[in-house]
């Protein structure tokens, strides 16, 4: 489904070179929930942005669904992106649009006729449980509701992949729970592959099948969640394991 081969990312400002990612190899299977955990600055945000080419790799190959993403021309890349949903820590909703209009946005981009958009949007609003708030503006919503709009929007085009960039990091523990449940449900119902990055161990433990621990731009451990955290080898992994009881107190 998704494959990263020897991916490297170097930021080259005039003055200094920063290696954000070095030699990343990753394979994510179809239908999997794959977590990438690391502290801020570890390179996880860069990593997830490489998958839909919001960042260009300096070297290496990025494959999504049999397509070599880093070799697509602009037009093909736009079409490929329409099949990769993304949700964000700060939701990134259009403040000038209502819930309904925000969810319709990617469908307008893809050029669907209005009747089709309306029908799909209604389905999605129901799916994320926002029927009552369909005509509210983002400023009138709570954080959890905003992220539900973000999820509905990301699913609008029936994507095969959903990228989650710290989607629960701005939410309180209870809301985090409900958003994670929603992601879990979506994964099971539609078989969408979900790749999420987080710094919270709890998120990984709760919904991920497999996990990669990233530190200093490198993947230091990788495998099924139970294996990686059942028998942590690296110091950083052990630190994350220690986080769990603290953060999942309401489990």
């Amino acid at each position: 489904m998704i494959k990263l081969n020897n991916v490297q990312k170097i930021y080259d400002n005039n003055k200094q070179r920063v290696t954000a990612l070095k030699n990343i190899n990753l394979e994510i299977k179809s239908g999997e929930i794959y977590g990438i955990i690391g502290y801020s600055g570890a390179g996880k945000s860069t990593l997830i942005r490489l998958i839909n080419m919001l960042e260009n790799p300096t070297a290496g190959e990025i494959w999504v669904n049999g397509q070599r993403m880093d070799r697509l021309n602009n037009e093909k890349l736009r079409l490929a992106r329409q099949k990769i949903g993304m949700i964000f820590q700060n939701f990134n909703l259009l403040s000038s649009r209502t819930v309904r209009q925000n969810i319709a946005f990617p469908l307008e981009i893809a050029g669907y006729p209005k009747e089709k958009i309306d029908k799909r949007v209604s389905e999605l609003i129901k799916l994320v449980g926002l029927t009552e708030r369909a005509d509210a503006y983002p400023s009138e919503l709570s954080g959890g509701q905003k992220q539900r709009v973000g999820i509905a929007r990301a699913l609008a085009n029936n994507p095969e992949v959903l990228l989650s960039d710290e989607a629960t990091s701005a939410l309180d523990p209870k809301t985090t729970e409900s958003i994670l449940n929603l992601l879990w449900e979506i994964n099971r119902k539609f078989g969408i592959t979900i790749i999420l990055i987080t710094h919270e161990m709890h998120v990984i433990k709760k919904i991920c099948h497999r996990v990669a621990v990233i530190d200093g731009g490198e993947i230091v451990e990788e495998g099924p969640v139970t294996e990686v955290f059942g028998n942590p080898k690296k110091e950083i992994t052990k630190e994350f394991v220690k986080q769990v009881p603290v953060l999942s107190g309401n489990d």
Partner: peptide, 23 residues
């Protein structure tokens, strides 16, 4: 972030101006 979200959805430059920046 909103502009980045639009790019991630496959919007072209014209759509980003017309549907994101201006409104």
């Amino acid at each position: 972030g909103v502009v980045e979200a639009a790019i991630s959805m496959g919007a072209n430059v014209f759509q980003i101006i017309w549907k994101v920046y201006l409104p």
